[in-house]
Amino acid sequence: MSSFAEAYTWINFRFLLEGLWVTVEVSLVSIILSFIIGSALGIVRYIRAPFISTIVGIIIDLTRNLPLLLLLFFTYFGLPKVGIRMDPLAAAISAMTVFESAMIAEIIRSGIQAVDTGQMEGARACGLTYWQALRVVVLPQALRKMIPPLVSQFISLIKDTSLATIIVLPELLYRAQIIYGQNTRYMIPMFVALAVMYFVVCYALSLVAARLEKTAG
């Protein structure tokens, strides 16, 4: 047990917290970007515009059926071959945004579809245009339905930032590895600290979401 006391010094803790900040930073940026892009793609796919919706649909399906790790490797190690070079932070954010946008687009599309088509028809019958009906009647209802799957997707995203440790992004997991690499006795204390830190961030998000769902519903 003494290894715990030795491992949990302020210096190590601060080093980990700096990593947690990188994790949160990457997560936040990716969540915001992929929510915007994903919503746009999801709506494009839903409206069934000829040609463009099909193309968007294909891209979404291809992307979300690939492992994120592969996209990350491709972005960091593969894309430089065609002249696109990024540092680990930019590569992590890009790969996560592409992947999560596809996942979110799918949530948005099925969320809109789940709202009874009668709603749309009714709104149109009341004289609203297609876009008005979508914006005023369908989307707000769909959004409420989408909150739980969106939140679990965001939680997945936070957890998935740990994958970026392989491209040497100095996030939480990478820093824990640096610490226990220097003193192997710190291995278990570091894994405990990792588990607690990820848990606190992810669980806090799900609590906030549950609250949001209550007030929205």
């Binding site: 440790t165 997991l173 588990a195 799900s206």
Partner: peptide, 15 residues
């Protein structure tokens, strides 16, 4: 459920 849902798979696997 909450424990395993809120910890990255990579951390579990590496453990």
């Amino acid at each position: 459920i909450e424990v395993f849902r809120n910890i990255p798979l990579l951390v579990i696997g590496m453990f």
